[in-house]
Design a protein around this nucleic acid. Structure first.
Length: 668
DNA sequence: GAGAGTTGAATTTTT
DNA sequence: TTCAACTCTC
């Protein structure tokens, strides 16, 4: 098996029992997974349809798919399943919705929709101001991730507040059921419950998925652990790959202890450690090893590399955040002009999004192209949410959340009072809002004029529902045109350009829908496509297409899985990294792993920066160097930080200054 | 529905 | 301090 070291080879070939691969940063774990899929098909004779690889992100799934098809050129991989946990869960539910109390065509609510729904429940109660919807949502999400239902949550509640949250959880679940909808967490929870209660359904899936591979296993939560445990059954035909040192999502319900738990649940578990790092030069790796050694470990591993020592990692001390950004910007210009480093080879990593701002400013001023990860996701945009609500309502007439979002968008003169009366009535009748609009009994509560307006809306939906049953995309397109959504956008946007951009977003959405219809979903209905659309991050791809030669600005959380020749790890200060609240809540270990993840992104050069004062709430605060810096051996770090003054460097600085000047002139 | 004023949050957010 | 989200008023 060429191109693999002996440990990797062993991991690929081992199928005798469950396998845990502890893959250190940069040790080639994706390579192991993709090679193993190829091995299972080509050498072990497994049919592709019996293999399933699960990831956490769409991006990871896409990359894996690409690499597998490269690996298996010419081999028919039809049926091979490489998807995210959530997509797998959605597919399981779609095949048997009625088994979990859903009806076909059910809607999928994203995190924002869930929060709005909770907000609705909170509105009008005494604690509107005392409880934030997002906190409730977070708590509910944690419960679901831990496989705890509302009743269990209530019985475990230790005080009135917890009990109240549990009651809100119960209300929320009732609404979801009434709307024939599920949220993201249900995509894991509901299949797990389904498999627990229906052995026959479980067996069918076990028969279908005969070998399971899971990536980033340290990020699984309890529900995901259970789902994997059920799916793999007693056969133990699975490989999970993870790294406890890169667990940075515990705050979101991830259970890195799931790695160790495997040893208890599967005594025959084989553990293989991948410790050879192919990414970083030795000095960088040394720092990473030293830092992470301060954390307690269940599995001891030590990364090593065949690469040379490389440049000494540096520390730049800056006066404040503006100076920090300025220094990093000129460092980048130096790299670009003196060392011919493409901008795209440089990353600036920080703890919190708000730290990005000074860097954006400095990079803009210096005319350095950059790319900021994060920001508003495609599906969070209002126009996309509107379009999605129309799609959802077409697919699922019981989706009251979708109904409420678009019943008066564009304007149909259906106001809050009308809707309130309608909602009161349908609550009594136990029907959906859409169905209630036509209920003759409504005449007692609403005037004829109002009922006519509602009726017109129902006709609109019904008409296009019929069209979209035959031709989903065509039906939706017709609907968007009939309501003249573009005119509505124009009315509300600050400029023609903004309106056009937004309309394009809607167009992109429909285009994606069209692609789905032509592809895997040619024989499926609108509901199937809409659910999958919600799980796809269209923006992901837009980012890559925009790509080009740009400096990457991103959070430490966002950088996991990536690598860059030159890394700036900024804001290395107490109360920032480790973050203040992590110090208070004593979750320093996860912060240390966050720093570790940042350090191990660097291939050739690593630069830390810190400031001596920083502004918080408009007040200047003195900052102290991060403990993670002082934990590192002083002789392995260049605390002087400055570049030497060679003639080449002077020349490069001259070019940098020209570039800067150009930036300033362009900006002016 | 727009515009003014008020309030609250500033940690991370794979789906 | 700054920005976004929400509320209130016309």
């Amino acid at each position: 098996m060429p191109g693999l070291n002996s440990r990797q080879r062993e991991a690929v070939r081992y199928t005798a029992a469950p396998l845990l691969v502890l893959a250190g940063a940069g040790s080639g774990k994706t390579r192991v997974i993709t090679r193993k899929i190829a091995y299972l098909i080509e050498d072990k004779g497994l049919q592709p349809r019996h293999i399933c690889a699960v990831t956490f992100t769409n991006k990871a799934a896409r990359e894996m798919r690409e690499r597998v098809s490269q690996q298996l050129k010419g081999v028919n991989t039809r049926g091979l399943r490489i998807s995210t946990f959530h997509t797998l869960g959605l597919d399981i539910l779609r095949k048997a919705p009625e088994q979990v109390g859903l009806r076909s065509g059910f809607s999928l609510l994203d995190a924002q929709d869930s929060e709005s729904l909770i907000k609705e429940h909170l509105r009008g109660t005494a604690e509107v101001d005392a409880i934030s919807a997002s906190a409730v949502q977070h708590r509910i999400s944690r419960w679901k991730n831990d496989l705890i239902d509302p009743a269990a949550a209530l019985s475990r509640a230790e005080d009135d507040f917890e009990a109240r949250l549990a009651a809100l959880y119960a209300d929320y679940e009732r609404s979801l059921r009434a709307y024939n909808a599920v949220d993201f967490d249900d995509l894991i929870l509901a299949p797990a419950r389904l498999f627990q209660s229906r052995p026959a359904v479980l067996e069918a899936w076990q028969d279908r998925l005969r070998y399971l591979l899971v990536d980033e296993y340290q990020d699984t939560n309890s529900a995901q652990y259970e789902l994997v445990r059920l799916l793999t059954g007693t056969r133990g035909a699975f490989t999970v790959v993870g790294d406890d040192d890169q667990s940075i999502y515990a705050w979101r319900g991830a259970r890195p202890e799931n790695l160790a738990r495997l040893q208890e649940d599967y005594p025959e578990l084989k553990v293989i450690m991948l410790e050879q790092n192919y990414r970083s030069s030795a000095r960088i790796l040394g720092l990473a090893n030293t830092l992470i050694a301060k954390n307690p470990h269940v599995f001891e591993k030590r990364l090593w590399s065949e690469h040379g020592p490389g440049d000494m990692p540096r520390v730049l001390r800056c006066t404040d955040e503006a100076n920090e950004a300025e220094r990093v910007a000129s460092e980048i210009l130096h790299l670009h002009f003196a060392e011919k480093v493409p901008f795209g080879d440089v990353a600036v990593l920080f703890r919190g999004n708000h730290q990005a701002r000074p860097f954006e400013k400095a990079l803009r001023e210096h005319n350095i192209p950059y790319f900021l990860s994060g920001g508003t996701s495609f599906f969070a945009r209002a126009e996309v949410k509107d379009a999605m609500a129309y799609l959802r309502l077409l697919a699922n007439p019981e989706d009251d959340a979708a109904f409420l979002r678009i019943v008066n968008t564009p304007r149909r003169e259906i106001g809050p009072t009308t809707l309130e009366r309608l909602a009161d009535y349908t609550r009594e009748q136990g029907t959906s809002l859409l169905a209630g609009c036509e209920d003759p009994g409504l005449a007692e509560h609403l005037s004829e004029r109002q009922r006519n307006r509602l009726g017109a809306f129902v006709d609109l939906i019904r008409e296009h529902r019929r069209r979209s049953a035959e031709d989903p995309v065509g039906g939706v397109r017709a609907l968007i045109e009939t309501i003249d959504y573009y005119a509505w956008l124009r009315e509300h946007a600050s400029s023609q350009r903004v309106a056009e951009r937004r309309y394009e977003n809607v167009g992109d959405l429909l285009e994606w829908l069209g692609k789905l219809q032509k592809g895997d979903f040619h024989d499926k209905g609108l509901a199937d496509m809409v659910g999958h659309l919600t799980l796809m991050d269209v923006l992901d791809r837009q980012e890559e297409e925009a790509g080009g030669d740009r400096v990457h600005l991103m959070t430490l959380h966002a950088c996991k899985g990536l690598e860059f020749p030159h890394v700036f790890l900024v804001g290395m200060e107490e109360e920032l990294l480790p973050h203040r609240s992590s110090i208070e809540e004593d979750t320093i270990e996860e912060e240390r792993r966050l720093a570790y993840v940042g350090i191990t992104r660097a291939q050739r050069a690593l630069t830390f920066t810190l400031t001596s004062r920083r502004r918080r709430y408009g007040e200047w605060i003195r900052s102290e160097p991060s403990r993670f810096l002082t934990e590192l051996p002083a002789d392995q770090l260049d605390w002087g930080g400055e570049r030497s003054d060679t003639p080449e460097n002077r020349k490069a600085r001259g070019m940098s200054h020209l570039h800067m000047l150009k930036g300033i002139l362009d900006a002016g």
